[in-house]
């Protein structure tokens, strides 16, 4: 266990635990847009930065990546930290002006848009948090989604912006997307996502359409469970 101070409060933490978690466990909220408990943190959004004092040195660190250390003093709301957060939110508001999620979050933080930044007009709300990419790769294991290009041209999507043969229509990306850039639409027996439409499987017991056939085939192949056994929905199992 290590002892550290967060916003004036002395707390104990397991060594190696990241600051973001330690703060949350002690009732201190740090805003973030790219951290999810099921996924490894990447430090992409930069909202969770905090200022730490270690001996005589002060520095800004990423709380979702920085592990708790003995004797450090953490300030989650210093002037420097608030300035970073203000600009990150203003950058994101200008990047995706149509996102109500970003707008509401900024409002809650008391941040108004910077009028000098011309809002983007492409209508996109992707903030490059990369949660969808990580979920698709690490949790689902198909890697249908990814990035393309770099810098200001960086884009998110499937290769060549075409429906991906790898996509199984599980919907994890839509589920995890914080700004609803990725959406999923359904009819009774189909589901459309990432430019691809999937046929849904009807439950062999109750007849309800419950999962894309491709997803069930993928699970069957991966786990070795017979496809028959997988064609029963969770409520009938």
């Amino acid at each position: 266990m290590v002892k550290l101070v967060i916003d004036g409060k002395t707390v104990q933490a397991e060594e190696g635990k990241i600051l973001l978690t330690v703060a949350r466990e002690n009732g201190i909220e740090i805003p973030t847009l790219c951290s999810h408990e099921t996924l490894e943190n990447t430090g992409a959004c930069r909202l969770c930065v905090v200022e730490i004092t270690k001996g005589k040195r002060k520095k800004i660190v990423t709380s979702c990546l920085y592990a708790a250390e003995d004797g450090i003093v953490v300030d989650t709301k210093s002037d420097r930290v608030l300035k970073v957060r203000r600009f990150v939110m203003q950058f994101l508001m200008a990047r995706c002006p149509t996102s109500d999620v970003i707008r509401d979050m900024a409002a809650n933080m008391g941040i108004a848009p910077e009028t000098r930044f011309k809002p983007s007009e492409d209508g996109k709300t992707c903030i490059f948090c990369r949660l969808c990419v990580k979920a698709c790769e690490d949790v689902v294991g198909v890697s249908a989604l990814g990035f393309a290009f770099r810098g200001v041209d960086k884009a998110l999507g499937t290769p060549y912006r075409e429906p991906s043969p790898a996509c199984i229509g599980c919907g994890s990306c839509a589920y995890i997307c914080p700004t609803r850039q990725i959406t999923m639409s359904s009819t009774e027996n189909t589901r459309s996502i990432c430019g691809k439409t999937f046929k849904m499987k009807a439950c062999s017991v109750c007849g309800r359409y419950f999962a894309p056939e491709e997803q069930l085939a993928f699970i069957s192949k991966k786990t070795g469970v017979d496809l028959e056994a997988l064609s029963v929905c969770s409520s009938c199992r």
């Binding site: 990814g146 393309a148 290009f149 770099r150």
Partner: peptide
């Protein structure tokens, strides 16, 4: 060429999204 990237993806068992990511980066 796209066919070449697809062949690399199949031969090396690297997801197409990763091959495309590197090819465009």
């Amino acid at each position: 060429p796209k066919e070449a990237l697809l062949t690399i993806h199949e031969q090396m068992d690297i997801p197409m999204a990763r091959v495309y990511e590197v090819a465009t980066f």
